[in-house]
């Protein structure tokens, strides 16, 4: 059974067909990459599924339930989380606080006005564990605004991961970091996602990363799905070569 399905999902911004009648599926446990040139509709599709924007028409079903009109909060409760292309963190809070906030929210504890956050040992322990998994433990007490871009990217994913999602969207998890840092970041993310059997959708422009870490690749072009298949099939697809890689791509 598919974890997520969209049916004729559509979003127009004026005359621009950002997402045009897209039928998209993700299987349970899959690590899927979404590729396409700039403006192809990748981020718009993720924004629609995660609830940042609402579709003009079409349907989104998650674990068999129609979530098309649900708000962000309901989608998170259902098990959808995301990281962002431009990192979204709580810059004036520590790394530990950033992750702990996700856990507090996940457990419905942020509604508590008269209990000390510091007394919730289980939350802080879990936050430390998550930072350790992401290799950020040594900077637990550093403010999120004071770490490197690569670390910020990892923390952004860690904050989403702390929600214990079933489906995790990773919007360009290595954008803005040096070439040398990209593989280690993806190694960390990939190992955690696969170990926890989280279904993940990765949006990326770096094709080496895409082909190395994906089970399946979905190619978008001008708001539509151009192709979908295993990495090798996509690599050899003539339409994809023309639309995404360009004629000179080997």
């Amino acid at each position: 059974m598919n974890l997520l399905e969209t049916a004729k999902l559509t979003k127009y911004f004026g005359d621009t067909h950002a997402v045009d009648k897209v039928d998209f599926t993700i299987g349970e446990g899959e690590v899927l990459s979404l590729i396409g040139s700039n403006g192809a509709g990748k981020t718009s599709l993720v924004n629609l599924i995660s609830g940042l924007i609402l579709p003009d028409s079409g349907q989104i079903r998650f674990r068999g339930e129609d979530i098309t009109k649900e708000n962000v909060h309901a989608r998170i409760k259902a098990g959808i989380a995301r990281s962002f292309q431009i990192v979204n963190l709580f810059d004036e809070l520590t790394l530990l606080d950033n992750v702990a906030l996700s856990i507090f929210s996940r457990e419905g504890m942020t509604r508590r006005l008269f209990s000390l956050a510091d007394r919730q040992q289980a939350v802080w322990q879990e936050a430390h564990d998550i930072l350790r998994q992401f290799g950020l433990e040594l900077k637990a007490e550093v403010l999120a605004g004071g770490i490197s871009q690569g670390e910020r990217k990892l923390l952004d994913v860690a904050v989403a991961y702390a929600l214990k999602p079933r489906l995790l969207f990773l919007d360009e998890p290595t954008s803005g970091v040096s070439t040398r840092e990209k593989a280690p970041i993806m190694d960390v993310i990939s190992s955690i996602v696969r170990a926890q059997k989280i279904t993940a959708v990765v949006i990326e422009h770096d094709m080496d990363i895409i082909f190395k870490y994906s089970d399946r690749i979905v190619v978008m072009h001008q708001g539509e799905i151009l192709a979908s298949g295993a990495p090798e099939a996509i690599r050899n697809d003539e339409r994809v070569k023309d639309a995404v890689f360009g004629p000179t791509h080997a």
Binding site: V72, N88, A117
Partner: peptide, 27 residues
């Protein structure tokens, strides 16, 4: 007590980054 509670932390999260706060499930 309020500012040191999980609720107080959530307020600081909203202050720092509304989008991220929303996407960790804070209303």
């Amino acid at each position: 007590l309020i500012v040191h509670s999980p609720f107080g932390k959530a307020l600081q999260a909203i202050r720092d980054n509304e989008t991220r706060a929303r996407f960790i499930g804070i209303r």
